[in-house]
Simulated assay, not measured.
Amino acid sequence: MAALFIGVAAVAISSPGYFRGVLTGEAGHANRCGEGSWQYKYAMIVRDVQPADLSAVAVLLGQLGYELDEQEVRGRLDRVRKASDHSVRVAVVDGKIVGLLHVFERPALEKPCEAVVQSLVVDAGLRGNGVGAALMQEAEAWARDRGLASVVLYTRTDRDAARAFYERIGYGLSATSHFMRRDL
């Protein structure tokens, strides 16, 4: 699968300005998008995760509070990458992985099939610069391409900044629940 490029042609990554009218598309086939209110501070590439990204993925998951060794991340990533109804994408700025998105299709009996954002994390040093918004646009495009009518996600109640971010990009509280688990 070709990489998706997000950025502005002929603008250096180190440019301090914000970009409008972002170009996206497969390599060699750029399309104009970003007609909404999004602004990106950096040119970035959003692409499928690769095995070589393992270390960066582990670091980003650690920033979410999930301290996992690389072997554990490798096993989880291998399993998710094999599932055809899952997508794992990374955002790359200046050759460095700065964001991670894991989205999957969830069929259900009691409601229409929907996309679920399982993980979204942006490197702490780049939060607030449009990387998360770009990754969420990726999740929404992935869902639309699969004919899904909605994207849902869960955010912990103590993650106020994350909740505010999701609200800013158009997500609203849909339900509250108790997450329950029984280890086997």
Rank of each mutant, 00 (worst) to 15 (best):
M1C: 02
A2L: 06
V8L: 15
V8N: 12
A9T: 14
A10C: 15
A10R: 15
V11R: 11
V11N: 03
V11Q: 13
S14E: 15
S15R: 09
P16R: 14
G17I: 07
F19D: 05
F19A: 12
G21K: 15
V22T: 13
T24A: 14
G28I: 06
H29V: 04
H29P: 00
N31F: 06
R32I: 05
G34F: 14
E35C: 12
E35G: 13
Q39I: 11
M44E: 08
P51S: 02
A52D: 10
D53G: 01
A56Q: 09
V57P: 01
A58S: 15
A58M: 10
A58L: 04
V59H: 14
L61H: 15
G62Q: 05
G62T: 09
L64R: 11
L64G: 03
L64D: 04
G65H: 08
Q71W: 00
Q71I: 01
E72H: 01
V73P: 00
R74N: 00
R76T: 03
D78A: 05
R81A: 01
R81E: 00
H86P: 03
H86V: 05
V88R: 09
V90G: 06
A91I: 10
V92Q: 10
V93D: 07
D94P: 00
D94A: 12
I97N: 01
G99E: 10
F104G: 08
F104I: 03
E105H: 11
E105Y: 07
P107V: 14
P107T: 10
L109F: 11
K111Y: 05
K111H: 13
C113V: 11
E114K: 15
L120D: 04
V121P: 06
V122A: 05
L126N: 02
L126V: 03
L126I: 02
R127F: 06
G128I: 10
N129T: 15
G130A: 04
G130N: 09
A133K: 13
A133L: 06
A134S: 14
M136P: 01
A139K: 10
A139P: 11
A141I: 04
A141P: 00
A141H: 10
A143L: 03
D145T: 01
D145W: 02
R146W: 04
G147C: 08
L148Q: 04
S150K: 15
V151P: 07
V151T: 10
V151W: 08
V152K: 15
L153I: 07
Y154C: 05
Y154S: 08
T155E: 05
R156T: 03
T157Y: 09
T157R: 09
D158E: 13
A161Y: 09
A162D: 12
A164H: 09
A164S: 05
Y166C: 12
R168H: 13
R168N: 07
I169S: 03
Y171M: 08
L173W: 02
H178G: 02
F179L: 10
M180D: 01
R181W: 10
R181L: 07
D183W: 04
L184H: 03
